[in-house]
Amino acid sequence: MAVPDAGTAAADRAGAPARRVARRPGRAFSVTRLPGFGLVAVTVFVLLYAPIATLIVYSFNDAPTISVWGGFSLRWYADAWANQQVKDAALRSLLIASFAAAISTTVATMAALGTTRRGRFPGQTFIYVMINQPLMVPEIVTAVALLIFFAAIKVATGYQGLGYLILAHSAFCVPFAYLPIRARLESMDLSLETAAADLYATPWQTFRRVTLPLMAPGIAAGAMLAFVISLDDVIITEFVKSAGQDTLPTYMLGKLRRAITPEVNAISTALLGLTVLLLTAFFLLTRKRG
């Protein structure tokens, strides 16, 4: 976008000002022509990606420090791969994220159906706010609340398993799964379901044959987003987990408290790779069809 526009902008500056005024309004203003736009854009990109680039580069560093380059090597990946604690944490992370994505997507799908496949109803805005509440409440507040809440349950039942983490993750993933599903449903004309009913489909058949296939990309996108969000969580996990229930992010946090080694870089880079993969799939699924 910015490259061809820069050429036009230069041409415009050279031309008479009167000609620029005569242009159509949509064309007349472009943020890319504001002074300093290029500088700001470059700065933002550098700030965003330079640290990540450094992280990736040093994950391949042969030296045992994270500040001196000692040649290319995959030893930190090998170390991480051989580390049983890392493997356990990674598996736990994937397990929790899978369950959390499945549960939250199911709940979010039902919520999205309930809030979009019908006319406006009283309390609609309130329901939206309720569903999206985890996006607005500070995570640390939710974390403390869950800690206290689950502690009581742990005492009462004696159950110490991963269920708490799965439940907690499922809960805060709901809005992330909900938003793409709802966006998808809102772009779908309600008249398709009306047409199905007109063609003798029962409500269940209508859902199975029309609504579900059409909303499937939204559901997949929601599930992926939920998965990534769960995979990435630190605060709530840190508060809710019992002993020996480290996920990859909390394991890394614990490790960093003691010593900073390129092994953490390697794990981070692997996690980044997985996330990028999933988010790419997410964007492919949600982008508008030409």
Binding site: L192, A195, A196, A197, D198, Y200, T202
Partner: peptide, 20 residues
């Protein structure tokens, strides 16, 4: 009776064809 039990069919103004 619901629409699926009525022996009538509709041609919608917007056509409402199933895109999938």
């Amino acid at each position: 009776e619901p629409p699926n039990r009525r022996p009538v069919n509709t041609v919608f103004q917007s056509y409402a064809l199933f895109p999938h």
